[in-house]
Amino acid sequence: MRSKTPAYPYIVWMAIFIIIPVILVFYYAFTKTESGGMVFTLENFARAFEPIYLGVMWRSIRLAFFCTVICLVLGYPVAYIVAQRKTGTRDIILFLIIVPMWMNFLLRTYAWLTILEQNGIINSVLASAGLPKLNLLYNEGAVILGMVYNFLPFMILPIHTILKKTDLSLVEAAQDLGANGINVFLRVVFPLSVPGVISGITMVFMPAVTAFIISNLLGGKQVVLIGNLIEDQFLNVYNWHFGSALSVILMIIIVITIGIFSVAERDEGGAVL
């Protein structure tokens, strides 16, 4: 009995901030407002599966996928290089990676506006070199750039954490058995870092697939993601029912993704642990 008491605040917390909102979302998703009352309906979901909205979902998943792949390709080498450094140097590099995250998220993303604009920094440089200007803003490229910029640390940190813990004797064992640098990496270091890679992928994919502020600022509503649709339903057009249905679908997408990755992690982790 005694051991249960300290959990109550946490349960209350869960109820207020997790369970109740989720119940409300489901409630709104399966109802519509009719003559002042709420009526059960599946209309919201039927609408969500119209081709136009499926297109938006597909775009969200596609962009989140690209963002995740790019983060992995950029983040893994960084994590690897950092993990190789001495503790002091490592802390400084990690600090530098984390510092931008202390800056306001909007401010960081706004900064990209002034870089990518038609009269922005990049185009000014191009123009002064006599080159034609590029349309860098308000397209999918800009949105992916913004996502990668904001979420890259979430890829680097978990991979770094696991690489840092890599048992040096395993690396030596591999060398001893004839593995050169590439073989050591491919056959030992990388396979052992897979759990970090998986948690990095999860931590980048989740915010990327739900992003709406980045796509608002850098996509200018030209690159509308499922997050923007939801935001619009709640804050502009006040259709909470449709917005909730979209939220439920997004939740399902996320649960499926987590499921796939945790299965992958378990398969991998069985051998690791």
Partner: peptide, 12 residues
């Protein structure tokens, strides 16, 4: 070839 103190078998 070496046999390591803590074996250093590849866990994966």
């Amino acid at each position: 070839n070496t046999v390591f103190q803590r074996y250093a078998l590849f866990p994966h």
